[in-house]
């Protein structure tokens, strides 16, 4: 079974008196262990789709199964709990908590899990190591570069070992070097750990790092192409 299964997924917004169909009967399957780039013009509904997959937003109609769970059946608190166990989310603008150190930011989602302090510590250390920031535990976000901040954010998304890593333009605010570092990291995660990744990007060269590219246009899938 696919990790993600969208059937006839719709998301409508009321704007003025008009209904805007942001996602219009979208069908999409994403396999476990796959690496997908989600592309499309601005306003085509990429973030909206990612938010639906994360259970941050709700579909207007259609069916959405993620890791076997029908997200429409969960209430807001249940979705939060489900998310903490199944989804890691990486934002374009990092969104680290400014008063917490890199270590504490990464630890934050783990505090929701029933772990011993030792196990938690081990996982935080490991996550920071996997993003090459073993020497930046005590740094506050403002003491880090943009690239480092994004790597902390990735460590925070991965530390709970989620089945699904969602990233909304994770390199959109980074220079080439830092963007490449993040892409190398995603590539490693996918290749070595079989991490399922769905990543939104504008950039063709970034998208080319993924296994396949999904294009959204007018709320539907335009093409699906294998990059490699």
């Amino acid at each position: 079974m696919s990790l993600i299964d969208c059937r006839s997924l719709c998301k409508d917004y009321q704007r003025g008196g008009e209904v805007v169909h942001v996602l219009d009967h979208l069908d999409l399957s994403i396999e476990r262990g796959s690496y997908t780039a989600l592309m499309g013009p601005s306003g085509s509904g990429k973030t909206t789709l990612l938010n639906l997959l994360a259970g941050i937003d709700r579909a207007s109609s259609g069916k959405l199964l993620v890791d076997g769970t029908d997200l429409a059946q969960l209430d807001r608190n249940q979705l939060a709990g489900w998310r903490s166990r199944h989804v890691g989310y990486v934002f374009q603008l990092y969104n680290l908590v400014p008063v917490l150190s890199a270590y504490e930011n990464v630890e934050l989602p783990l505090l929701l899990h029933d772990l011993t302090a030792a196990e938690r510590h081990r996982r935080v250390v490991e996550a920071l190591e996997s993003v090459d920031l073993a020497d930046r535990h005590a740094h506050l976000p403002r003491q880090l570069s943009g690239g480092q901040e994004q790597r902390v954010a990735i460590a925070r998304a991965l530390v709970t070992q989620p089945a699904l890593l969602l990233a909304d333009e994770p390199t959109g605010d980074l220079d080439r070097t830092n963007a490449d570092a993040v892409m190398d990291l995603f590539g490693r995660l996918h290749a070595q750990r079989g991490q399922t990744i769905v990543m939104v990007t504008h950039d063709d060269s970034i998208a080319s790092r993924a296994e396949r590219t999904v294009r959204l246009e007018k709320g539907r899938l335009a093409t699906m192409e294998a990059a490699r």
Partner: peptide, 11 residues
């Protein structure tokens, strides 16, 4: 909203 995305319930 970020905290909620990380899995913290609103309460």
């Amino acid at each position: 909203a970020v905290l909620e995305t990380l899995g913290y319930p609103r309460h």
